[in-house]
Amino acid sequence: MDITTLEKEKNEGIETLPSEERRKFLKMGLTVTGVFLGGTVLSLTSVKKALCGNTDSVIPADGQYPYPKHYGMVMRQNHCIDCEQCLDACRDTNHVPAEHDAWRTTIQERITTVDGTEKREFRPILCNHCNRPPCVRVCPTKATYKDQETGIVVMDYKKCIGCKTCMAACPYNARYFSHDRYAIDKCNFCLDTRLAKGEKETACAAACPADVRVFGDIKDSTSEIYRLLHEPDNKIWVIRPECGALPNVFYMNA
């Protein structure tokens, strides 16, 4: 029956509709609602358990390291006493100018009040050498890139045009414009100043008297950093995980 024939038919109204038809219609409505409601409830069910155990999904799983070495750092945050020896060591080692805005690593501070008592926290930060680094993606000239041997995010100063897009893109404010180099500068885990010379630690990690910074190859199952990251009781977190940059600097309280 097409629409023109239907239009000519007289409207029977709903009064004459048999109750069996009404029930059928109601059942269909309930089925549709049930399917959608069921789907919604299922989609709300947490799948976190499948992704992570006692630690957190921020830690790369075994077999997901694309570089021969995969350097990272664990910060035992509550050990930090803000002595700033790491900052001085970094400046000396990497020739970071002593200007307010220029740093490769720094210590942030936060004062919180718990039960009327002021609590002071310190948080060392530096470049997170992300697995999905926003700075590397946005650089127009590949002046910043992931070192294929170590996974460290490094700078090729001569290619930097100074557009500062990497500074805007970095979730960690880890980059600054160096007037000495006339290019963007950033932490490179002392790749050129220490690791290339056979040192096993970064300058900041070596200088820390409170053993806050644990540097190493997170791929190496015998390393201290590997142990800390995979210790079931350790609660590990990263800064700004929502940015999806997959950082390689991890935080914990020990």
């Binding site: 650089c139 127009p140 000239t141 002046a143 045009i161 557009c163 897009t165 414009f177 290019a183």
Partner: peptide
């Protein structure tokens, strides 16, 4: 505005980054 436009003229051509919006825009 950019710090080293002369480097842009060189490295935009010999070292392009296809994932960079800035590169495509320019």
């Amino acid at each position: 505005e950019i710090a080293s436009p002369h480097r842009m003229l060189i490295y935009n051509i010999i070292s392009p980054n296809p994932t960079s919006n800035i590169w495509w825009m320019g």
